[in-house]
């Protein structure tokens, strides 16, 4: 395969509406309504929203698993329902199950063979991916029946990347994964970004998305309610935070006085704390708990 220098829009969603027929009386439920969205090449894009907001349906339309009721979805300019479009995609479904009777290694190999890979190229790719997701330590020889949720998620990530696709779609990649696994998946996403991949993430875990996404779209009840670059949406433009070390109380009073004199207002004051996640990671690391799965 030869990948030629790329550019802008890799996924285009134009006026997408998806309705599901509920019963024989043809009553429908609208999962997504009039959605317009563009994902650019090389960015990490997050679709956020509560459960039932239409995130997974949108991803299913992009993957050609369901067809749009109205509108159009293009992947690299190809209509998403065409199998040709799937050649550019890697997909990790929410709570992946896979074939329980296969081992982790056999699973990645199966998907690789399905994509036409074989011989030494397949062997080295499988090894490389198992190493990337941290399962090349003997656990790859175990049947998936005995895998934890976090390990299944890693195998899911490995199969999604097996043909080195330019676009990777991750549906709730950290749902049900412990903080260490979650951190590792975050690192893999950042690594993919570094390699020039386009990553589309659907999630309702906002803090984790905030750490990796360049742009986000927030959906609710099937409708897009907000879209934009994260660094433009999140910061409070008229505020600034400063963390000071070793400041005496009397000096603190002087600083506060100065801020008042210059027309500023102290909105919040307190002692910064480590996050519970950092505390957890530190505690586990100190015990040398690498085999958390």
């Amino acid at each position: 395969m030869v990948w030629v220098r790329c550019m802008r829009k890799v996924i285009e969603i134009k006026n997408l509406t998806k309705k599901f027929v509920l019963d024989w009386r043809q009553r429908t439920m609208t999962a997504v309504s009039g959605l317009d969205l563009t994902v650019n090449e090389g960015e990490v894009f997050g679709i956020l929203g509560p459960n039932g907001s239409g995130k997974s349906t949108t991803l299913k339309v992009i993957l050609g698993l369901v067809s749009p009721t109205e509108g159009e979805v293009l992947v690299q300019g190809i209509p998403a329902h065409q199998v040709e479009a799937h050649r550019y995609l890697g997909f990790l479904p929410e709570n992946p199950y896979f074939y329980q009777f296969l081992t982790g290694e056999e699973t990645v190999r199966f998907y690789g063979r399905l994509l036409g890979m074989k011989g030494k190229a397949l062997d080295s790719r499988v090894e490389e991916l198992l190493e990337l997701v941290g399962l090349l330590d003997g656990r790859q020889k175990r049947r998936l029946r005995g895998y934890s949720k976090g390990m299944l998620q890693r195998i899911g990530l490995a199969q999604a990347l097996v043909n080195d696709p330019p676009i990777v779609i991750l549906d709730e990649p950290t749902a049900g994964v412990d903080p260490i696994g979650s951190r590792e998946i975050r690192d893999i996403i950042l690594e993919l970004k570094k390699r020039g991949k386009t990553v589309l993430i659907s999630s309702h875990l906002l803090e984790q998305v905030q750490e990796v996404c360049d742009r986000v779209c927030i959906m609710d009840k099937g409708v897009k309610i907000l879209e934009g670059k994260l660094n433009e949406l999140v910061p409070l433009q008229d505020r600034v935070a400063v963390t000071i070390k070793n400041l005496r109380p009397e000096d603190m009073l002087a600083v506060e006085e100065l801020i008042k004199q210059r027309g500023g207002e102290i909105v919040e004051k307190g002692q910064p704390r480590s996050t519970l996640e950092n505390l957890f990671l530190e505690a586990v690391r100190q015990r040398g708990g690498k085999d958390h799965d």
Binding site: L63, G64, L65, V83, E84, H86, R87, L89, F91, P93, N95, P96, Y97, F98, Y99, Q100, Y111, L114, L115, G156, Q159, A160, N163
Partner: peptide, 12 residues
């Protein structure tokens, strides 16, 4: 088991 998702989302 949703295994169909991972297969049909590939060029199959």
């Amino acid at each position: 088991q949703r295994t169909v998702y991972t297969i049909l989302s590939k060029p199959v």
